[in-house]
């Protein structure tokens, strides 16, 4: 089995966080020379090329990159919905063959089942596994209680706010005990304030679970605040532009976002991202365009100046 040497290699360079965990229960993700090409009507499009990355067991890794750089594509390949055009995607040494409950996924869009109550949504994974009605109800209640969502167990998703929906989505994904959690811009549709709170909930939750997390975002602060490591992707076709370790201590507190370490990381990431965002917008943006208007009007009417 090739899984064993791979695991050893990983153990050797595992960071302090993973070493302090009680026992690694798997969750090693390895993506090697990943390339994905979409065949569409207008011809083939390389969405992602030459991406190699690892997520060690129990590690929180973010991917950040401009819109359309292939972040969701990569995540969908990890989830098992897309086959790499070339390269490999493995979890604990096994190639990913299709979707499965060992990898919990939170999608970019809300994906709770509208016809199921919060509790029935959380029960879904257990139901698919053949767990009996009473037992899965009990498990879901316990889990919702631990996540502070008990009061909403009989609500339909419709009645929940966006933040609440994503929390339930995370709890639903966790109910089957996955080794890996894949999140695709889960807080992208939330307002800034809710978003901060959700980030804190997620980081605290992860601190207790110690499962591997891949978190996709295009928000710098979010990536720094949450992650052990950040991969920065280039604009399409996406490749890894940089890999940045985040040495901030755990548990993470909101106040850390003001620390000089945080700000230094932010500055570094900012310049990396800015280059790529400009590139992503391609010919749309020139130096003149960046100025907004290449003329100073001093309060005069545009028609008069023209």
């Amino acid at each position: 089995m090739s899984a064993i040497p791979l695991f050893r290699r990983d153990e050797a360079k595992a960071p302090a966080a993973a070493a302090s965990a009680p026992k690694p229960k798997g969750g090693l993700v390895e993506v090697t020379d990943f390339r994905l090409r979409y065949d569409s009507a207008e011809g083939a499009v390389d969405a992602v090329t030459d991406v190699s990355l690892t997520i060690r067991p129990g590690e929180f890794v973010s991917i950040i990159g401009p819109s359309g750089c292939g972040k969701s594509t990569l995540l969908n390949a990890l989830a098992g919905f897309l086959k790499p055009t070339s390269g490999t995607v493995t979890v604990d040494g096994e190639p990913v063959k299709g979707p499965g409950a060992d990898r919990g996924v939170i999608f970019q869009q809300y994906s709770l089942f509208p016809w199921k109550t919060v509790r029935e949504n959380v029960e879904f994974g257990l139901k698919m596994r053949g767990v009996g009605r009473a037992e899965r109800a009990r498990a879901a209640r316990t889990l919702l209680g631990l996540a502070g969502l008990s009061a909403f167990e009989n609500h339909y998703p419709d009645r929940l706010s966006g933040g609440m929906k994503q929390r339930v989505g995370i709890v639903r994904a966790l109910a089957t005990g996955p080794r890996i959690l894949l999140l695709d811009e889960p807080f992208g549709a939330l307002d800034a304030q809710t978003r901060l709170i959700m980030q804190q909930i997620l980081t605290n939750m992860w601190q207790r679970l110690k499962i591997s997390v891949l978190f996709i975002t295009h928000d710098l602060d979010e990536a720094i605040f949450l992650s052990d490591r950040i991969y920065v992707m280039t604009s399409r076709p996406g490749t890894v532009k940089a890999e940045i370790a985040v040495p901030l201590p755990r548990p993470r507190e909101p106040a850390m976002t003001m620390s000089s370490e945080f700000l230094a990381l932010r500055r570094g990431l900012m310049s990396l991202i800015r280059e790529e965002s400009l590139k992503a917008m391609g010919g749309e943006i020139s130096e003149e365009a960046l100025q907004g208007l290449a003329i100073n009007l001093d309060g005069q009417d545009i028609p008069r100046v023209l």
Binding site: P99, V105, F113, M128
Partner: peptide, 15 residues
């Protein structure tokens, strides 16, 4: 039907 719902179900182990 929103295809993301089908994908969510598959990720939770649905056949």
């Amino acid at each position: 039907v929103d295809p993301v719902l089908g994908r969510a179900a598959r990720c939770l182990g649905a056949s």
